[in-house]
Design a protein around this nucleic acid. Sequence first.
DNA 1: AAGCAAATGTAATGTTATTACATAAGTTGC
DNA 2: GCAACTTATGTAATAACATTACATTTGCTT
Lengths: 131, 131
Amino acid sequence: MTVQQLTRNQALVLDALSASEAPLSAYTILDKLRGDGFRAPLQVYRALDKLQDLGLVHRLESINAFVACAHPDQDCCSHGLTAFTICESCGKVTEFHDHMIEERLAAFASDRNFRPGKTTIEIRGHCAGCA
Amino acid sequence: MTVQQLTRNQALVLDALSASEAPLSAYTILDKLRGDGFRAPLQVYRALDKLQDLGLVHRLESINAFVACAHPDQDCCSHGLTAFTICESCGKVTEFHDHMIEERLAAFASDRNFRPGKTTIEIRGHCAGCA
DNA sequence: AAGCAAATGTAATGTTATTACATAAGTTGC
DNA sequence: GCAACTTATGTAATAACATTACATTTGCTT
């Protein structure tokens, strides 16, 4: 199991994110984990960095927050392009993958000899429940 | 002309962005405009807010920076979806619009009764010149 | 000129993220 | 076991980005 190789701090951060309905900021995670001995932002940021490398956590650039990956088992998360809808009322995040969008962006980049690294796609708005 | 209706602060901020090759952070803009009487971050943020409303400036969420719109004349900027490539070496930003991606994202949102607001698409990587 | 909305000036504060440096824990080869 | 190396941690300080609050001014409309 992939989670077994995590350190204590990494596991605590991942658990905090997994337990949360909405995305969490690094400082919110820090506060949640003070009872577990966390004292400084760097403890959180370091764990988040590693978890992102492992494809277990995503950073939402447009709201400076983090979510646990919805499909941590599949490779699509760590390597393919991931897109999100983010509800501005309730915070609910939906993660999705669209091959055609991926191709389309890759084609644009290729045409211009742009070598793509990390790509961000985030739709902020209101979910069905928050109409 | 649309630029005529800008206030002094707004025009100064837009000029600073237009004159720059790379995107600028709010605080970098502030420093550039100290000679013009700017003293506080809020002066920059307020001008940026207005310029974004007018579709003359885009915020790049993934790097906390701002660029002048490449096509300020066309409606596509203010209303349609705008995507960017961002070179992590030289900072060069290319703005583009892809109708198919827009449709695809709209379809996903529609399927889930998600009402989309602002959408962010940013590809970070390396441009042709920075291979 | 009165009233109103938009913009401005200023200070203080809040939020997010990184640098720097010291220490500890796990791994590998011998 | 232990030396060498890499990875993870702890801690403090600081940097970078953004907003709140409040007073004042400007420009427009009537």
